[in-house]
């Protein structure tokens, strides 16, 4: 173990090389393995050249269209910039909104924290986009890094990856980390929930609380392994939580936009500013955003460490 770790540090060995294989295979068959890897690599390059010949026409078309759309976009943006008011000029279009937020923010949104009232009430559409950006990022990392079943079984190309064991330096068995994790994780989760529920009355809110909750999950998975996290927060729970949060956000805010834009009666009470249940939709929206952020953070960590969400 120590020798392998040192070999990896000195750059003698590839990071992704399977250590169980490397330890067992004698030198003569290692040569065979290298030859096989070389052949595989040549095979991939052969298919790549075929694909390149087929798609040459597409790439020429692609270049023309990308240049054209860039020129159009630059034109539109320059035209918009030319029509902006000068810097520092007293412009009713920009000053009015700020005054309105500061003077009527508390009574209109029901949130003492004006920033939260702004991002989750006046500009909730923007925050909806942000949480969808997080979701999209998670999906992209999932597409790029998730190991499929073929690779896991080792029948595909090289049997490079092992998923059952962390390579070289597994810290989840460490008794010091376990003790600290046992004491710290509940405290971190409690603090995260406090920040989450306190978003409309003080500093805090969905994004910071989500980061804290995600950190708690990461510490938990480091101390007790991904299998322990799977018992409460498996990949299925993660995807379900993300979906429910985003769907709830879209539906609830869509309702508010519809009734507000059409002058219909809105049945969501504002509450007394300063209470936990105040600000109408702000508290549930904060919870939704926090859950999405926590899921994204834990998903990133798990995918980068294991190539999968959770143990499995």
């Amino acid at each position: 173990m120590k020798e392998l770790f040192f070999r990896w540090l000195s750059g003698d060995m590839e990071l992704l090389e399977d250590i169980s294989d490397a330890a067992e295979i004698p030198d003569s068959s290692r040569e065979d393995l290298k030859k096989q890897k070389k052949e595989n690599r040549q095979k991939i390059q052969g298919t790549e050249s075929v694909i390149r010949a087929e798609e040459k026409g597409f790439f020429a078309f692609y270049r023309v269209v990308s240049v054209m759309s860039c020129i159009v976009l630059i034109g539109v943006l320059l035209y918009t910039v030319a029509n902006l008011p000068r810097y520092g000029e007293e412009n009713p279009r920009t000053v009015e909104v700020v005054k309105r937020y500061i003077e009527h923010g508390v009574e209109e949104t029901g949130a003492v924290n004006i920033v939260t009232g702004m991002i989750l009430d006046y500009r909730a559409f923007d925050t909806l986009g942000e949480s969808h950006v997080l979701f999209t990022a998670l999906v992209c990392v999932l597409i790029l890094l998730k190991l499929d079943k073929k690779t896991i079984r080792g029948g595909h190309l090289d049997s490079y990856y092992t998923i059952k064991e962390d390579r070289f330096f597994d810290i989840s068995e460490d008794s010091v980390l376990r003790l600290v994790g046992t004491i710290l994780v509940p405290c971190i989760i409690l603090f995260g929930i406090y920040v989450l529920l306190n978003g409309q009355n003080g500093p805090g809110g969905g994004f910071s609380a989500g980061a804290i909750l995600g950190a708690a999950l990461i510490v938990f998975s480091l101390a007790f392994g991904f299998e322990a996290v799977d018992r409460v927060f498996s990949a299925r729970v993660l995807s379900l939580t993300t979906f429910v949060s985003l769907a709830f956000y879209s539906l609830a805010k869509g309702y508010v936009f519809f009734t507000g834009a059409n002058g219909l009666e809105n049945h969501i009470p504002k509450g007394i500013p300063g209470n936990i249940f105040s600000g109408g939709l702000i508290l549930p929206l904060n919870v939704a955003v926090g859950l999405v952020v926590a899921c994204t953070m834990y998903g990133f960590f798990s995918l980068f460490k294991r190539g999968n969400i959770g143990g499995a």
């Binding site: 810290i171 010091v176 600290v180």
Partner: peptide, 17 residues
């Protein structure tokens, strides 16, 4: 509470190396 844990792992890496 937390900074000794990180020192612990740093020293462990040092031990392995």
């Amino acid at each position: 509470f937390t900074s000794p844990v990180s020192s612990h792992f740093l020293s462990q890496v040092e031990y392995y190396a």
